[in-house]
Design a protein around this nucleic acid. Structure first.
Length: 264
DNA sequence: TCAGTTGTTTATAT
DNA sequence: AATATAAACAACTG
């Protein structure tokens, strides 16, 4: 599992940029569905009929969702744990996990997804977009300090579970959450009500800097985006050299430094 | 061979 | 009502 994408906010933001660069303003000539199992609320025929001849607009990202606006119906794409957006100038080199290909008047956009978690939905109109996306918290990349503090005020449970809850704040997944909490030196199981003003402040700062850094450094590859190593035996905290601890929070493998991130 | 992995949904429990 | 937990989902790796 060394090279796999694990799409969180920074990944989806990169997909959005790719989509914007190559698809915005382009006309959809055809929609090739090689695996209809990735389509969630639409058939391959309906998708093609709805989009052929339409033009892609500027795409939008909300949390881990990509909204591929067009001048007609709108594809909503979720990447699950292995999704990706690729562009190619022609039809050469398609990958066997390219489940949906949008053939444009110049090049083609490929929605790749090895495991088929996530998927593609088709929203018939803007109101349908809202319905399908459901309840999403404010986007983690653009929430301001005040908004974040207000969120914390009205949440009780553990901090990591909250950060990963997309209805609380949208865009943060397991890896980002671990990195943010390590930066902020806060234990993943700390109940939010007992976080001090100082800790809340560190948390907001870590959220901002980690997201900014992982988005900016996207092309450098997966490993370099994180300060703390995952899955390596005997991995140590870069700050204090303590061996990282591993546990499970919200069903997800969680790494933290038992020295820097104290449970109380 | 099979446990482990990722994000989300759904069901169930507290 | 809100939060927590676990299983299910798909496909692949080690």
């Amino acid at each position: 599992m060394q090279d796999a994408e694990m799409p969180e906010l920074p990944d989806v933001e990169e997909f959005r940029r790719r989509f914007a660069r190559h698809a915005a303003g382009r006309t959809i000539g055809d929609v090739v569905v090689t695996d209809a199992g990735i389509l969630r609320n639409v058939t391959a025929d309906e998708l093609g009929d709805a989009l052929r001849g339409r033009r892609f607009d500027e795409p939008e990202r909300r949390g881990k969702w990509l909204i591929a606006w067009t001048d007609g119906p709108t594809p909503l794409i979720h990447f699950g744990m292995t999704g990706d957006i690729e562009w190619a100038g022609n039809r050469d080199g398609r990958h066997r996990h390219d489940r949906v290909v949008f053939v444009l008047d110049r090049g083609e956009i490929r929605y790749r997804n090895m495991r088929k978690l996530g998927g593609l939905w088709l929203a018939r109109d803007p109101a349908d977009v809202e319905t399908l996306l459901g309840e999403l918290g404010p986007d983690a990349a653009s929430i301001d300090r005040r908004g974040f503090m207000e969120l914390l005020e009205r949440r009780r449970g553990g901090i990591k579970a909250a950060l990963m809850d997309q209805t609380f704040i949208a865009g943060v997944g397991n890896l980002l959450a671990d990195e943010i909490l390590w930066q902020a030196r806060i234990h993943p199981l700390r109940p939010i009500p007992q976080l001090s003003t100082e800790e809340r402040s560190r948390l907001y700062r870590a959220l901002q800097t980690v997201i900014a850094r992982t988005v900016d450094r996207y092309p450098e590859g997966y490993e370099t985006r994180w300060t703390i190593a995952r899955g390596r035996p005997m991995a140590r905290c870069p700050r204090c050299r303590t061996e990282l601890a591993r546990t499970v929070v919200g069903g997800r493998t969680t790494y933290f430094c038992p020295t820097c991130q104290q449970p109380t």
